[in-house]
Design a protein around this nucleic acid. Structure first.
Length: 534
RNA sequence: GCUCCUGUAGUCUAGUGGUCAAGGAUAGAGGCCUCUCGAGCCUUUGACGCGGGUUCAAAUCCCGCCAGGAGCACCA
């Protein structure tokens, strides 16, 4: 808090200086307004009334919430906050298809993702609980002649749609339609043998609008309701009913669902209902990711990934596991507003946001990847311990004491880069490196065993030479860092890391930020941390 | 191919006819500071897709073109 206050003050002061003294007070207000705008950079909701806005997020439970879902999560939540409205989580768990099935564990994953993002839904609904509600109005649509039962096989249906040809059943009388509907419900049709379609227009220029399917038969075993139901609504029908039934006022979702708006509207028109306002955002992609949900799913299932929170999934839980703060993610996705163009953003932007949050309060520690043993001849006898600050700019974060001997671990890379030169063990002493260092002698991160490189102590005062982080051989602990590129980057950390607990975040100097995973039972195993970003 | 959407600097975004010789963020360059390749500070490069039109006036409205994207399932 204090940091923020001082920062914004100096920031403000410098800007004011540039603008000229006399205008100072109005400029300050302008600045504050601009800041406010930036932090809540979403347009007003059309027709929104204070306290009466109802929003929903409707994920399909097939995995953890994805970074793309984060946009829906935070945008909707932001509007809830702004208008003091309601925000529901509606599991869009209709039965799916062969390729896309609801997964039982995913319900909890999504709930956890939301909790870790700091967003609490006002209520949670499951479409799989609401089948009777969807059945309620179907007969009416058939009787009104607005929908019909089609018994074409899928391929015929598709071909007819392409050729703009209506099926014979389309014109049949409502009483027949009702019978067929009952037959669908009672098991008289097998999956694939009959569907309910809405009558829109078989000649519509967009093939997607030519008599879409509203209900179909599936005997898949649903993870929540098993085989209790065999007639399942399609997404647009279930939404058309629920969005009205739950009193949703604004549907804010990705533009991939933009066609479904029109279907929902068509259904409302038939049933004489009035639905919410639609708004859309374009697709958001993180440049570094080439992930597909099904690929992630496979890798999680096969064990190639370390669970749903494997950093390579880029799921919300994986970001939390890396120490990406929900507030950083929130600022990140809200900064894109509600633009409908598809965007591809470098992860660096998210990292910068997170660094701003983390840097002022995160303790510094020494971690040495690919460590080499360095014995320093002539180390001053009296140098048994050294006290190091936990944060270079914030003495209030305290310091820790490190025990010393004449042996250290240093990154192989830095050693090889500086052969024959003098380097500084950061905050400690200066050391002359030998003229030659053999490659390939990386020490075992747990035992610390490995060939020694021999250095020579020179002086103690700070000098403008390469300053390398080091880990004292006394009390060094094995560290296993999970980076996006390397699931197990092994190294050693300073003794104080022996007692890390899950959730602690450190900045490893000259390496980057990392968050501690749950630690292994066996204390001789390396401590586990997940890399966030430099 | 059809339908729809979108085009502001490397990237993201503000901008809804004049106050825009276009603002912010991020990235880049240079410098300062710093016992981290982190943070901070200063300076700086850089954009309205193209062509017409309407208007006293267009990033903003209209038309055409071009480019990009999404959708075109008995998935969501």
């Amino acid at each position: 808090m204090e940091e923020v206050a001082t920062l914004s003050e100096s920031d403000r002061r410098s800007r004011l200086g540039a603008l000229g003294g006399p205008l100072a007070p109005p400029s300050t207000r302008k600045e504050a307004e601009a800041r406010h705008e930036r932090e809540h950079g979403l347009p007003p909701l059309p027709g929104a009334e204070e306290g009466k806005v109802v929003l929903r997020l409707a994920p399909f439970p097939s995995g953890s919430l994805h970074i793309g879902n984060a946009r829906g999560l935070f945008v909707n939540d932001e509007y809830r906050r702004r208008y003091h409205g309601k925000f529901y989580l509606v599991f869009d768990d209709t039965v799916g298809s062969d390729e896309k099935r609801p997964i039982l564990e995913s319900y909890d994953l999504i709930l956890n993702d939301m909790a870790s993002a700091g967003v609490r839904p006002d209520a949670v609904y499951y479409k799989s609980d609401r089948l009777p509600l969807y059945y309620r109005d179907a007969p009416r649509m058939l009787e009104l002649g607005a929908a019909y039962v089609c018994t074409c096989v899928a391929e015929t249906l598709r071909k007819n749609r392409e050729a703009r040809v209506a099926c014979a059943e389309r014109a049949r009388e409502p009483s027949w339609q009702r019978e067929q509907w009952d037959r669908m419900l009672s098991g008289g049709y097998a999956p694939g043998e009959a569907v309910v379609r809405i009558k829109t227009d078989m000649a519509h220029p967009n093939p997607a609008f030519r008599d879409r399917v509203l209900f179909r038969i599936s005997d898949f075993d649903h993870p929540r309701v098993g085989t209790r139901y065999r007639v399942w609504p399609m997404l647009e029908y279930a939404f058309a009913i629920d969005d009205v039934e739950l009193g949703i006022t604004h549907i804010i979702r990705g533009k991939d669902l933009i066609m479904e708006d029109l279907m929902e509207e068509a259904i409302w028109k038939v049933l004489g209902l009035r639905g919410p306002v639609f708004m859309h955002w374009g697709l958001l992609r993180i440049r570094e990711t080439k992930i597909s949900k099904s690929k992630s799913y496979q890798d999680v299932r096969s064990g190639a990934y370390d669970g749903w929170s494997d950093p390579r999934t880029w799921g919300l839980s994986s970001l939390a596991r890396r120490g990406i703060r929900p507030e950083a993610l929130r600022q990140f996705v809200l900064s894109f507003g509600l633009s409908q163009s598809d965007i591809e953003v470098p992860a660096e932007t998210l990292y910068t946001e997170n660094r701003r949050l983390l840097d002022p309060t995160t303790p510094r520690r020494a971690f040495v990847p690919r460590p080499r043993r360095l014995r320093v001849e002539g180390m001053p006898q009296e140098l048994n311990t050294v006290r190091l600050a936990n944060h270079p700019e914030r003495p209030e974060l305290g310091e820790r004491e490190v025990e010393l001997s004449d042996t250290f671990f240093l990154p192989e890379e830095d050693l090889l880069k500086n052969v024959g030169r003098e380097i500084r063990l950061k905050d400690l002493v200066n050391v002359q490196l030998p003229p030659e260092i053999a490659e390939g002698g990386v020490a075992d991160p747990v035992s610390g065993d490995g060939p020694e490189v021999l250095g020579q102590f020179t002086t103690r005062p700070n000098k403008p030479i390469p300053r390398i982080q080091w880990v004292s051989a006394k009390g060094a602990v094995g560290i296993d860092v999970f980076t996006l590129e390397q699931p197990h980057l092994l190294g050693v950390g300073e003794a104080s890391l022996a007692s890390v607990r899950e959730g602690q975040v450190f900045q490893f100097e000259r390496f980057g930020f990392a968050r501690a995973d749950p630690q292994p039972e066996d204390p001789s195993r390396p401590r586990r941390l997940i890399f966030a970003h430099p």
